[in-house]
Design a protein around this nucleic acid. Structure first.
Lengths: 233, 233
DNA sequence: AATTTTGTATGCTGAATAGCATAGTTTTTT
DNA sequence: AAAAAACTATGCTATTCAGCATACAAAATT
């Protein structure tokens, strides 16, 4: 089940902050309980109301965390890239998941039992701090996003979504093509608008020479302009 | 500066979860560094972009945490009652505050240096868990609120705001008068709508015999109906 | 290769809600 | 107690955005 090569790589190269703070014994404990799963494009990793059981570690691919609202629309809450962790919040809060996660594209993930994570936190102060820091960052981000989604106008929200994509996934080697190819519907779900409006607003950005669009390939031509629109709503 | 009686009371009676998990030595360390402050109605406790320094402990009164958005409107993020804690997130995230807090009414608060709190967390696992739990709860709440504010219609949002007030502050002895008296503007800021619309929608709730209103005194006459409106948007 | 399904683009229409004005009321200050 | 300031109520209008329909394009399936 475990692909030794990948895992050893992660441990040896300390690819992620979290590994560097574990003792040798803890690293091996985790390695022995680290199960690799492969998810197909759009496959659900866990769903709202499920009972949390694992800490998920994204090794390869892209993941979205989202929540279905009463409006029938799906709101994308956060995006993840390698190597980032998720799935722990609900366990720590001692409640079922309030959101779902799915792979944006074919992805490889590692699952570690939260029971084990908790045991290690009890012995390793640094891991406790890792999660305190992580949760604090996310909470600040969530509060900020709440206000942006409710108060910015459509152009500002879509511009913000595009900057989020830049900041999370960056550009291809040409330095301007977004390194994520998502459906207009997902772009809309990230920006709290209908698919129609995401398409319409993208078009106006094209006509304003802020971006160019070729199917799902989006080039950011004028990033300062984009960030300005995002900032001022 | 320290009002011994109040403080001793809190420590002795273990009024708050947090106290019961400290050792005797830690309790005294905190007590010696616990400074009581009094805030007037609407007085700012800390503001967005300030550098976090203290853990604030609300002893008496009511506090709102809010953020000013580009839309010019203030969004109320969370409400606090005695004995609850706030002000720690930004410090843990190692960043300036992203939101502000103010006293809703004349309030008494205790300030404890975050430096001290961090030192105690380093030695007391249980305190680390207290904050991990607290942050996790708040993050789930923030994510949920984000989707509700963006997807529920005005009636649903106002109904939700009223249920939040019920759940946070409860009723007067008559069992139906909300134990918080806030301006329509604050009610609007809690529900992401204009003051006009908060007033209008309150009126329709009155005409539907879900609530009665007498100035800032709001009686919840039909709580199940209110929760139903909140739930279904 | 043909067919079906899914996704994208654009126009038109209607609904939800924001903005503003005015009048009256309550609260605070002097 | 009087005056000023702040808050509340309600009507009218403007704007933003959602909903839907249609046409076309691309991708997936048979």
């Amino acid at each position: 089940m475990i692909k030794k090569s990948t895992l050893e790589n992660i441990i040896k190269e300390d690819l992620a902050e979290i590994w560097s703070i574990l003792t040798i014994e803890e690293k091996h404990l985790v390695a022995d309980n680290f199960v690799i799963h492969n998810f197909k494009k759009n496959q659900i990793i866990y769903a709202e109301n499920d009972e949390p059981e694992y800490l998920w570690c994204l090794l390869k691919g892209k993941v979205k965390m989202f929540k279905d609202g009463v409006g029938g629309r799906q709101q994308i809450l956060r995006l993840y890239r390698p190597i980032q962790y998720f799935g722990y919040r609900a366990y720590f809060a001692n409640e079922p998941y309030v959101s779902s996660t799915a792979a944006f594209e074919a992805s490889q993930l590692g699952a570690i039992s939260m029971k084990l994570v908790t045991d290690i936190i009890d012995k390793n102060r640094k891991l406790a701090w890792f999660f305190i820091h992580e949760l604090s960052k996310h909470l600040g981000g969530s509060d900020t996003k709440m206000v942006n989604l409710t108060q910015k106008h459509i152009r500002g929200r879509l511009a913000e979504a595009l900057t989020i994509l830049i900041d999370n996934y960056g550009f291809e080697d040409d330095g301007e093509t977004l390194k994520i190819y998502m459906a207009r519907e997902d772009l809309a779900n990230l920006s709290n608008m209908t698919t129609s409006n995401a398409i319409r607003t993208l078009s106006t950005f094209v006509s304003e020479k802020i971006i160019t669009v070729d199917g799902r390939r989006i080039k950011i031509v004028n990033e300062p302009a984009l960030r300005k629109i995002s900032k001022f709503g």
